[in-house]
Protein backbone atom coordinates (compact mmCIF):
# COMPACT_ATOMS: atom_id res chain seq x y z
CA UNK A 1 0.00 0.00 0.00
CA UNK A 2 1.15 3.58 -0.60
CA UNK A 3 2.63 5.26 2.45
CA UNK A 4 0.75 8.43 1.48
CA UNK A 5 -2.43 6.61 2.32
CA UNK A 6 -1.39 6.38 5.97
CA UNK A 7 0.01 9.90 6.00
CA UNK A 8 -3.33 11.28 4.83
CA UNK A 9 -5.12 9.14 7.38
CA UNK A 10 -2.92 10.42 10.26
CA UNK A 11 -3.41 13.98 9.13
CA UNK A 12 -7.17 13.45 8.99
CA UNK A 13 -7.18 12.15 12.57
CA UNK A 14 -5.19 15.18 13.73
CA UNK A 15 -7.69 17.51 12.03
CA UNK A 16 -10.58 15.92 13.89
CA UNK A 17 -8.68 16.37 17.17
CA UNK A 18 -8.03 19.99 16.19
CA UNK A 19 -11.75 20.41 15.61
CA UNK A 20 -12.38 19.14 19.16
CA UNK A 21 -10.13 21.84 20.62
CA UNK A 22 -11.75 24.54 18.50
CA UNK A 23 -15.20 23.32 19.55
CA UNK A 24 -14.13 23.48 23.20
CA UNK A 25 -12.87 27.05 22.78
CA UNK A 26 -16.10 28.17 21.15
CA UNK A 27 -18.24 26.34 23.73
CA UNK A 28 -16.35 28.20 26.48
CA UNK A 29 -16.57 31.63 24.85
CA UNK A 30 -18.77 32.74 27.79
CA UNK A 31 -16.86 31.02 30.59
CA UNK A 32 -15.39 33.58 32.97
CA UNK A 33 -11.61 33.26 33.33
CA UNK A 34 -11.33 30.62 30.57
CA UNK A 35 -8.04 30.44 28.70
CA UNK A 36 -8.22 29.47 25.02
CA UNK A 37 -6.17 26.50 23.82
CA UNK A 38 -4.24 26.54 20.59
CA UNK A 39 -3.30 23.48 18.56
CA UNK A 40 0.26 22.65 17.71
CA UNK A 41 0.93 20.32 14.82
CA UNK A 42 4.17 18.56 14.11
CA UNK A 43 5.41 16.47 11.24
CA UNK A 44 5.41 12.71 11.45
CA UNK A 45 8.87 12.11 10.11
CA UNK A 46 11.81 14.37 10.40
CA UNK A 47 13.36 14.87 7.00
CA UNK A 48 15.49 11.73 7.09
CA UNK A 49 17.08 11.80 3.71
CA UNK A 50 17.86 15.51 3.70
CA UNK A 51 16.31 15.85 0.25
CA UNK A 52 13.82 18.70 -0.13
CA UNK A 53 10.16 17.74 0.26
CA UNK A 54 7.74 17.97 -2.60
CA UNK A 55 4.80 20.34 -2.06
CA UNK A 56 2.37 17.47 -1.69
CA UNK A 57 4.61 15.70 0.78
CA UNK A 58 4.86 18.88 2.88
CA UNK A 59 1.12 19.46 2.84
CA UNK A 60 0.46 15.99 4.15
CA UNK A 61 3.39 15.40 6.43
CA UNK A 62 4.24 18.72 8.01
CA UNK A 63 0.98 18.93 9.91
CA UNK A 64 0.68 15.21 10.42
CA UNK A 65 -0.01 14.87 14.11
CA UNK A 66 -1.45 17.11 16.76
CA UNK A 67 1.46 17.20 19.16
CA UNK A 68 0.13 19.53 21.80
CA UNK A 69 -2.26 22.19 22.94
CA UNK A 70 -0.93 25.45 24.29
CA UNK A 71 -2.74 27.78 26.68
CA UNK A 72 -3.31 31.28 25.40
CA UNK A 73 -1.98 33.50 28.18
CA UNK A 74 -3.35 36.76 26.80
CA UNK A 75 -5.59 38.98 28.89
CA UNK A 76 -9.35 38.53 28.49
CA UNK A 77 -11.64 41.56 28.38
CA UNK A 78 -12.74 42.89 31.76
CA UNK A 79 -16.46 43.00 32.14
CA UNK A 80 -18.19 45.11 34.79
CA UNK A 81 -20.63 43.27 37.05
CA UNK A 82 -21.01 45.58 40.05
CA UNK A 83 -20.88 42.66 42.52
CA UNK A 84 -18.46 43.45 45.34
CA UNK A 85 -17.02 39.94 45.40
CA UNK A 86 -16.41 39.69 41.64
CA UNK A 87 -12.70 40.14 41.06
CA UNK A 88 -10.68 40.30 37.87
CA UNK A 89 -6.92 40.13 37.54
CA UNK A 90 -5.15 42.44 35.17
CA UNK A 91 -1.73 40.96 34.52
CA UNK A 92 -0.37 37.45 34.46
CA UNK A 93 -1.39 36.33 37.97
CA UNK A 94 -3.73 33.65 39.21
CA UNK A 95 -5.87 33.29 42.34
CA UNK A 96 -4.95 30.32 44.53
CA UNK A 97 -7.77 27.97 45.52
CA UNK A 98 -7.51 25.11 48.03
CA UNK A 99 -9.29 22.01 46.71
CA UNK A 100 -9.45 18.43 47.90
CA UNK A 101 -6.83 17.65 45.26
CA UNK A 102 -4.35 20.28 46.45
CA UNK A 103 -3.88 23.90 45.41
CA UNK A 104 -5.37 24.97 42.09
CA UNK A 105 -4.99 28.23 40.20
CA UNK A 106 -7.78 30.16 38.53
CA UNK A 107 -8.51 33.48 36.84
CA UNK A 108 -12.25 33.16 37.54
CA UNK A 109 -12.81 35.63 40.37
CA UNK A 110 -16.57 35.25 40.81
CA UNK A 111 -16.23 34.64 44.53
CA UNK A 112 -18.89 34.36 47.20
CA UNK A 113 -19.05 34.08 50.94
CA UNK A 114 -19.88 30.76 52.54
CA UNK A 115 -22.47 30.62 55.32
CA UNK A 116 -19.51 30.82 57.74
CA UNK A 117 -18.24 33.99 56.09
CA UNK A 118 -15.33 32.36 54.25
CA UNK A 119 -14.37 33.60 50.78
CA UNK A 120 -15.08 30.74 48.34
CA UNK A 121 -15.27 30.14 44.59
CA UNK A 122 -18.54 29.39 42.85
CA UNK A 123 -17.79 25.67 43.30
CA UNK A 124 -17.32 26.14 47.06
CA UNK A 125 -13.54 25.86 47.39
CA UNK A 126 -11.84 28.33 49.75
CA UNK A 127 -9.80 31.13 48.17
CA UNK A 128 -6.33 31.45 49.68
CA UNK A 129 -4.89 34.59 51.14
CA UNK A 130 -1.34 35.24 52.29
CA UNK A 131 -2.19 33.53 55.59
CA UNK A 132 -4.52 30.75 54.44
CA UNK A 133 -8.28 30.93 53.90
CA UNK A 134 -9.92 34.35 54.19
CA UNK A 135 -12.87 34.97 56.54
CA UNK A 136 -14.86 38.15 56.27
CA UNK A 137 -17.27 39.61 58.82
CA UNK A 138 -20.60 40.77 57.37
CA UNK A 139 -20.54 44.27 56.00
CA UNK A 140 -19.28 46.11 52.97
CA UNK A 141 -16.14 44.69 51.39
CA UNK A 142 -13.60 46.65 49.45
CA UNK A 143 -10.57 45.20 47.73
CA UNK A 144 -7.59 47.28 46.75
CA UNK A 145 -5.63 46.75 43.50
CA UNK A 146 -2.88 44.84 45.38
CA UNK A 147 -5.46 42.37 46.73
CA UNK A 148 -5.84 43.70 50.28
CA UNK A 149 -9.37 43.00 51.50
CA UNK A 150 -11.01 45.40 53.92
CA UNK A 151 -14.35 44.81 55.56
CA UNK A 152 -16.09 47.78 57.23
CA UNK A 153 -12.80 49.68 56.98
CA UNK A 154 -10.65 47.08 58.78
CA UNK A 155 -8.11 44.93 56.92
CA UNK A 156 -9.36 41.33 56.81
CA UNK A 157 -6.66 39.70 54.69
CA UNK A 158 -4.75 39.85 51.45
CA UNK A 159 -5.42 37.71 48.39
CA UNK A 160 -2.59 35.46 47.31
CA UNK A 161 -1.73 36.17 43.68
CA UNK A 162 0.82 33.99 41.96
CA UNK A 163 2.48 33.95 38.56
CA UNK A 164 4.42 31.24 36.80
CA UNK A 165 7.68 31.60 34.92
CA UNK A 166 7.38 31.48 31.15
CA UNK A 167 7.23 27.93 29.88
CA UNK A 168 5.58 26.45 32.99
CA UNK A 169 3.19 23.68 32.03
CA UNK A 170 -0.23 24.47 33.41
CA UNK A 171 -2.68 21.58 33.27
CA UNK A 172 -6.37 22.36 32.73
CA UNK A 173 -8.42 20.64 35.40
CA UNK A 174 -11.94 21.80 34.49
CA UNK A 175 -14.01 24.38 36.44
CA UNK A 176 -11.50 26.90 34.99
CA UNK A 177 -8.95 25.52 37.44
CA UNK A 178 -5.35 24.92 36.44
CA UNK A 179 -2.77 22.89 38.25
CA UNK A 180 0.95 23.57 38.09
CA UNK A 181 4.10 21.58 38.85
CA UNK A 182 5.09 21.82 42.54
CA UNK A 183 7.14 24.85 43.62
CA UNK A 184 6.75 26.61 40.28
CA UNK A 185 4.64 29.47 41.62
CA UNK A 186 6.02 32.86 42.61
CA UNK A 187 4.29 35.91 44.05
CA UNK A 188 2.90 37.90 41.15
CA UNK A 189 4.41 41.33 40.72
CA UNK A 190 2.57 42.51 37.63
CA UNK A 191 -1.02 41.78 38.69
CA UNK A 192 -3.66 44.18 39.89
CA UNK A 193 -7.07 43.18 41.19
CA UNK A 194 -10.17 44.97 39.89
CA UNK A 195 -13.17 44.80 42.17
CA UNK A 196 -16.68 44.51 40.67
CA UNK A 197 -15.34 43.11 37.41
CA UNK A 198 -14.83 39.69 35.88
CA UNK A 199 -12.39 38.64 33.20
CA UNK A 200 -14.23 37.24 30.18
CA UNK A 201 -12.95 34.23 28.32
CA UNK A 202 -10.00 35.16 26.09
CA UNK A 203 -11.35 33.11 23.19
CA UNK A 204 -11.25 35.19 20.03
CA UNK A 205 -14.30 34.16 17.98
CA UNK A 206 -12.76 35.41 14.73
CA UNK A 207 -9.56 33.37 14.97
CA UNK A 208 -11.57 30.38 16.25
CA UNK A 209 -13.79 30.56 13.17
CA UNK A 210 -10.75 30.80 10.91
CA UNK A 211 -9.19 27.79 12.68
CA UNK A 212 -12.47 25.95 12.26
CA UNK A 213 -12.63 26.62 8.52
CA UNK A 214 -8.94 25.71 8.10
CA UNK A 215 -9.41 22.43 9.95
CA UNK A 216 -12.52 21.61 7.97
CA UNK A 217 -11.03 22.42 4.55
CA UNK A 218 -7.78 20.66 5.25
CA UNK A 219 -9.76 17.63 6.44
CA UNK A 220 -11.57 17.72 3.11
CA UNK A 221 -8.20 17.79 1.37
CA UNK A 222 -7.08 14.69 3.28
CA UNK A 223 -10.35 12.97 2.45
CA UNK A 224 -9.80 13.77 -1.23
CA UNK A 225 -6.31 12.35 -0.85
CA UNK A 226 -7.66 9.15 0.68
CA UNK A 227 -10.27 8.63 -1.99
CA UNK A 228 -7.68 9.32 -4.67
CA UNK A 229 -5.45 6.59 -3.29
CA UNK A 230 -8.26 4.12 -2.72
CA UNK A 231 -10.49 4.61 -5.71
CA UNK A 232 -8.19 5.81 -8.44
CA UNK A 233 -4.72 4.42 -7.84
CA UNK A 234 -5.41 1.24 -5.88
CA UNK A 235 -8.47 0.39 -7.90
CA UNK A 236 -6.54 0.86 -11.07
CA UNK A 237 -3.80 -1.33 -9.70
CA UNK A 238 -6.10 -4.14 -8.57
CA UNK A 239 -8.61 -4.11 -11.41
CA UNK A 240 -6.82 -2.88 -14.47
CA UNK A 241 -3.31 -4.24 -14.07
CA UNK A 242 -4.35 -7.93 -14.07
CA UNK A 243 -6.02 -7.36 -17.44
CA UNK A 244 -2.74 -6.42 -19.06
CA UNK A 245 -1.39 -9.62 -20.32
Amino acid sequence: MDSGYYAACTALVSRTQALDTIANNLANASTVGYRAQHNQFSSVLAQASGAPDSDLNQAINNYGILSGTMLDESQGALQKTGNNLDLAIQGSGFFVVQTAGGPMYTRDGSFQLSSKGQLITSTGDPVMGDKGAISLPPGSVSISPDGTISSNGAVAGKLKLVSFPAGTNLTSAGETYYSAPPNSEAASTDSTVKQGMLESSNVNPVTSMVELITAQRSAEMMQRELSMYSSEMDKTATQDLPKIS
Partner: peptide, 23 residues
Protein backbone atom coordinates in the same frame (compact mmCIF):
# COMPACT_ATOMS: atom_id res chain seq x y z
CA UNK B 1 13.66 16.29 28.50
CA UNK B 2 9.98 16.95 29.02
CA UNK B 3 7.37 17.96 26.48
CA UNK B 4 6.94 21.73 26.25
CA UNK B 5 3.17 21.54 26.45
CA UNK B 6 0.71 18.71 26.79
CA UNK B 7 -2.11 17.67 24.53
CA UNK B 8 -5.28 18.38 26.43
CA UNK B 9 -8.63 18.43 24.72
CA UNK B 10 -11.55 19.88 26.67
CA UNK B 11 -15.01 18.41 26.54
CA UNK B 12 -17.09 21.57 26.56
CA UNK B 13 -18.84 23.82 29.01
CA UNK B 14 -21.61 23.67 31.54
CA UNK B 15 -23.69 26.27 33.34
CA UNK B 16 -22.28 26.32 36.89
CA UNK B 17 -24.63 28.51 38.88
CA UNK B 18 -26.84 31.57 38.63
CA UNK B 19 -25.50 34.24 40.89
CA UNK B 20 -27.81 36.88 42.39
CA UNK B 21 -26.53 40.34 41.52
CA UNK B 22 -26.44 42.28 44.77
CA UNK B 23 -26.24 45.81 43.42
Amino acid sequence: TTVSSGLQVGLGTRPGNTEIIQT
